[in-house]
Simulated scan of single mutants.
Amino acid sequence: MFPITRPRRLRQTSQLRRMVRETVLTTNDLIYPLFAVPGEGVATEVKSMPGVFQLSVDKIVEDAKEVYDLGIPSIILFGIPDTKDTDATGAWHDCGIVQKAATAVKEAVPDLIVIADTCLCEYTSHGHCGYLEVGDLTGRVLNDPTLELLKKTAVSQAKAGADIIAPSGMMDGFVSAIRQGLDEAGFEDTPILSYAAKYASAYYGPFRDAAESSPQFGDRRTYQMDPGNAREALKEVQLDVEEGADMLMVKPALSYMDIIWRVKEITDLPVAAYNVSGEYAMIKAAALNGWIDEKRVTLETLTSFKRAGADLILTYHAKDAARWLQEQD
């Protein structure tokens, strides 16, 4: 009791605060997303995401080298093909854009961990994450036939050099199907980072600009989760663990820190939080207007994800955060 107990004693200097800090953000926690497009010498900034670019494979390699030099251990690749169709051919073809980028990065920076996003919405002509019933205009994806597409995609990405497969399409049974496909193809040591709790969120808007993946009709609420549900997230997580997931993802992060905490409470697997495009864009927009201190707000936000239980953080802030963390050291 006061005056014997004075919590301020441990806040007196920066060194003292650093000594007793409970949650420490490091570059080891970060994963940097990259968007691969066809061509050469292409670096097109995404208007709704300042500082984020669609990059051709040669530019992806340059960025990957920079990421590695900053001490960030991993990137995750998304692809934008030159053509799209109902079979999502660009997702699983051996010459797909993510496959080309994965191979090039592993050749140039072999120690950098390459994660391949395993989804289909960027590659389908209708913008949904799998097969649709012929004539369907609601966006209701056919679950079981889509599993075969995801399996083919994952195997193709692993063959191209991807170290980790990250399925994000929220199909029932997708972890089991992909695990089976990888094992049968000889990739039994390739881990799966499952988007286990992925919500139908309004925070994804800028990403759909970057990945050119907006659905042409309907929405994704028949397969992505309702934002009001928490118990359902734990059910999804438990199913993915039982199906063989090695790591788990919660997406988005900022409005779902309670979900990150709950997921971490029920599993010993590594938990990743996806600091999504809308969260990034809000900080960038406010900073560009001079309304906030970008560095402090970004690092505070990323630290809060880790405090909530995240072991890994996918974030478009990764390169800036790595530089700022180096300055602190």
Rank of each mutant, 00 (worst) to 15 (best):
K84W: 05
K84A: 10
T86H: 00
T86S: 14
C95T: 15
I97N: 05
K100E: 14
T103A: 13
T103Q: 12
P110N: 01
P110F: 09
P110S: 03
P110G: 08
D111W: 04
I113C: 15
D117E: 13
T118M: 10
L120E: 05
C121A: 15
C121R: 09
Y123I: 14
S125A: 15
H126R: 09
C129I: 10
C129M: 13
Y131G: 08
V134H: 13
G135D: 10
D136I: 10
L137R: 15
T138Y: 05
T138W: 11
R140N: 11
L142F: 01
D144I: 04
L147R: 04
L147E: 08
L150N: 07
T153P: 01
T153H: 10
T153W: 04
T153F: 06
A154V: 02
A154I: 06
K159D: 12
A160G: 06
D163A: 12
I165R: 00
A166F: 03
G169D: 14
D172V: 13
V175E: 00
V175Y: 00
E184H: 02
A185Q: 13
G186N: 01
G186L: 00
D189F: 05
P191K: 09
P191V: 02
I192P: 02
L193Y: 03
A196E: 01
A196I: 09
A197G: 05
Y199A: 04
A200L: 02
Y203G: 01
Y203N: 04
P206D: 02
F207C: 00
R208T: 14
A210F: 05
S213F: 12
S213Y: 12
P215A: 14
Q216W: 03
Q216G: 00
Q216D: 10
Q216R: 12
F217Q: 13
G218R: 08
R220W: 02
R220C: 08
R221M: 08
Q224H: 09
M225H: 04
M225I: 08
D226I: 07
N229M: 15
